[in-house]
Design a protein around this nucleic acid. Sequence first.
DNA 1: ACGACATTTTGTAGCGCTACAATTTTGCGC
DNA 2: GCGCAAAATTGTAGCGCTACAAAATGTCGT
Lengths: 338, 338
Amino acid sequence: MNNPGPRNSPRTRRPTLYDVATQAGVSPSLVSLFLKDPGRISKKRRDAVQQAISELGYRPSRAATTLASSRTKSIGLVIDDYRNLWFVDLLRGMESVLSDLGYQVMLADSRPGENRIKEATDGLLAMHVDALVLAAEPSEAMLSGTWVPTVVAGWRNGIPEGADLITNDDDNGGSMAANHLLELGHVRIGHLSGSDGASAHRRAGFLRAVETAGVDPVVSTSAGTSEEDGYAAAVWLLDHHPDTTAVFAANDTMALGAFAALKARGLSVPDDVSVIGYDNSPLAKSRYLDLTSIDNRSDLVGVDAAHRLLARIEDPALLPERKLIEPALVLRGTTSIR
Amino acid sequence: MNNPGPRNSPRTRRPTLYDVATQAGVSPSLVSLFLKDPGRISKKRRDAVQQAISELGYRPSRAATTLASSRTKSIGLVIDDYRNLWFVDLLRGMESVLSDLGYQVMLADSRPGENRIKEATDGLLAMHVDALVLAAEPSEAMLSGTWVPTVVAGWRNGIPEGADLITNDDDNGGSMAANHLLELGHVRIGHLSGSDGASAHRRAGFLRAVETAGVDPVVSTSAGTSEEDGYAAAVWLLDHHPDTTAVFAANDTMALGAFAALKARGLSVPDDVSVIGYDNSPLAKSRYLDLTSIDNRSDLVGVDAAHRLLARIEDPALLPERKLIEPALVLRGTTSIR
DNA sequence: ACGACATTTTGTAGCGCTACAATTTTGCGC
DNA sequence: GCGCAAAATTGTAGCGCTACAAAATGTCGT
């Protein structure tokens, strides 16, 4: 058999647009046109080109397209850690508006502990992403020469000049968490706080609400925001304030750490101690954990970020904008009346 | 006349290698050489180029590099769902060998529920990744014309022709889980199984071990592999076999579902029922959940996959290889003597 | 100071694609 | 069947970079 398909030729070079043009008996320009908008060429040629493409197994070279058109139709998303699942909602939110427009979202994580944020960003920029979403704490080094529309999502410190900012109202969220616990009748409330920017805002909101209610706040701040950090902070809290009846963790992962500390002391949730987390991550949604949490509506942040970037791609002269997304309390099974 | 030079203009086009060359007073070729191997040019020029680069904020265009060299120094990784954290170990394993060699790993997920595996793969291929790791169930559509070295990790069905296969010995892992429970004295063992390829192997291994021990196996298979699926399967199991004293879940997420079902019935882990998961995901490692699990050593799979791909990039004629990685039991707090 | 090398630097020619102007084909009224 | 506008198609000139051969410069022994 004389199969011209790619299946049998083991190491031929990847077919190009010219191969397709030759095969279809048209000019390369026509093929290019087909790729861009098939509706604009005659049915006869359209079919011929389509057939040549599938016969050859042709895929356009993004590199060449990028180089020639200087538009990649792709958006970079820099996150801090794949294990912090809050980015998933952000990503889906972005995709929900970008996919239909033919944009692709590219992910890069900062390799936690190695501070590779700059590398991640550079990698994305080197690929000519049309715009950038920074969902990780921006560092000094990246402030300079970004050249593309950028929105920072979820962080509020060290914003690169000229970047948009769409973030969660963590202050308000902190207050919400505190008020929820206060309304349930708790007065011995401990807060497990982390060290990043978001934590600081959540803490501030918590303190404001608690003090407004005339209750003495207890805050245990740790170095990071991981489960271990949450555990350590909770251990400290329970050691120094054994009468605590409610715990507000700066994120769901830390709440898990609190669970561990409580379990180790034989305290049950929510009967002995109520626990509320933050992020409404898949963890919190888990049927087993069933963790009351604050949803920061990252999906909305994603949607907004996408719209914002599209606008800036259209008109780069747009002035940077700052916007807060209101969080929402998600009631589940880990908080109860005192 | 001559162009004004990008030095002071604030909103100019992105600087190119030519701008750097002009600024540094050398030829473009030299700058290219600098980028490739700074050690090969004289110190004088090296410094000049380096300075020009930082003055201009220059970043090489990956698209141009790709086009000109046809090597992107990047590897694509296709995963099924960002929320299934097992890919993180795989990724880190790959990075541990690839990063030092200057390779970058690019991630794409298949958007669970939308079966976008082909799209994810195509996107990566369009970016000219030098090689591909498929950590998601390969589909028919992608079998044709891949053109780059490919290794499938963690799946064993529908392998594209010519692809390497590095996967976990799920059969053996299933047996390990069963034997662990048998050794603890359990004889009423239920298995919560999923519908994908890996689940099938784990189930087979489980059945083999249990039957060898002369114990009657009970398997509850559900449509997917999510926590809800685990919950449903566990509910069925407890309804039909209330005397069950041990549960082997096909993955950690499903184990979480089992926890939920057990909690709903007031059964405690491990006092009433032992639970063992699979994947040794961050979930299992969690201090709170402390889930005994089978570690499929995805990090090793990642390391092997990376080595394999590098070899195939060097010599594309290499014959496809199939390799199994042995899993390991990780003892934690959710299994105990009957 | 002079060849005979080794080392450093440069010019030339694409990589695969798109933009856009130029050209050819088609459709249509009369 | 003719003229002319609209639609369809093609040619030309890069996009920013690298490979590689050619040229320039440097180093050394005698």
